[in-house]
Write a protein that binds this DNA or RNA. Structure first.
Lengths: 145, 145
DNA sequence: GTAATACCTAAACTTGACTTTATGTCAAGG
DNA sequence: CCTTGACATAAAGTCAAGTTTAGGTATTAC
């Protein structure tokens, strides 16, 4: 069993955030000893899941919904599974878009390398795809078609 | 040259958002004809870049900074390059973390598949890594070590 | 015994990125 | 002529996710 201060250090989260999560219902049924929160293994596992679900873009109120389902019992297994399936789809799409974003950033890094070398953008202004190094042309092709 | 309404449709962005971006200085030197915004190729390219930079997690005020550098001329090439290098690092890290998030989601999907099949979590509560299908154990290993 | 720490609550405040509202101009169509 | 539609502005409102503040309790350290 851990105090809020210990958990704050373990997860590198401000105490105020942990209290806020608790207030929002993300630790249903958390124990207290004379008013003081006691974080057990259930709460630590909850925090691990919260971290991932948040990173996947899920809102607090929907994480709360999930936690409520966990309390409700086996009848909510299908709801919980659907939530994770949906998140999986969302994150897979996000990965594809982030990859495209990375292509753009690589292109721009190359672009400014070239601009710095040339001292101007004259040559770059007249670019055609064939001029581009292959590791950098993804985004250019994509954005200008 | 396009009107704000045309650009709104082209980029699937609300008109109010385009006006907000303009107010925040994301289209420095945009033309006007008797008060009406005229979006040219420069502004469209800006929007393509804004889309990516936003997706990479950059804030509006930092995008504005970049746009100001573009107006300022070749002396800011190094600043602009550094911005894209930093974004590249950030996005590469984000990709790694998203991949881990995806591992967790895959694990949870498998978990609830199993729970639905069993009708309870008894078997799952006593899990050890060796019990896990290999395509699903990444996250479990990671989180419980 | 008092001062420092670690905990608690409720309520107000903050931030970023928009969105909405209220009001107004201007050109084209019936 | 007058209404409709597309544009404009300034200012207020919204929303999520915290953070901060003000005030209080309980235990330990000197």
């Amino acid at each position: 069993m851990y105090t809020i201060g210990q958990v704050s250090k373990m997860f590198d989260l401000p105490i105020s955030t942990l209290r806020y999560y608790d207030k929002e219902g993300l630790f249903p049924g958390m124990e207290r000893q004379s008013g003081i929160r006691k974080f057990g293994e259930r709460e630590l596992e909850a925090l691990r899941v919260i971290k991932c679900l948040k990173f996947s873009g899920l809102e607090i109120k929907d994480i709360k919904q999930f936690m409520s389902w966990c309390v409700e019992g086996p009848s909510t297994y299908p709801d919980r599974k659907k939530l994770f399936e949906t998140r999986k789809t969302v994150v897979e799409n996000e990965l594809l878009m982030l990859q495209k974003t990375l292509d753009m950033l690589k292109f721009k890094c190359w672009y400014y390398d070239t601009a710095i070398h040339d001292g101007n953008e004259n040559r770059l202004a007249a670019l055609i795809p064939d001029d581009l190094p292959s590791d950098v042309k993804e985004w250019f092709d994509n954005a200008h078609s």
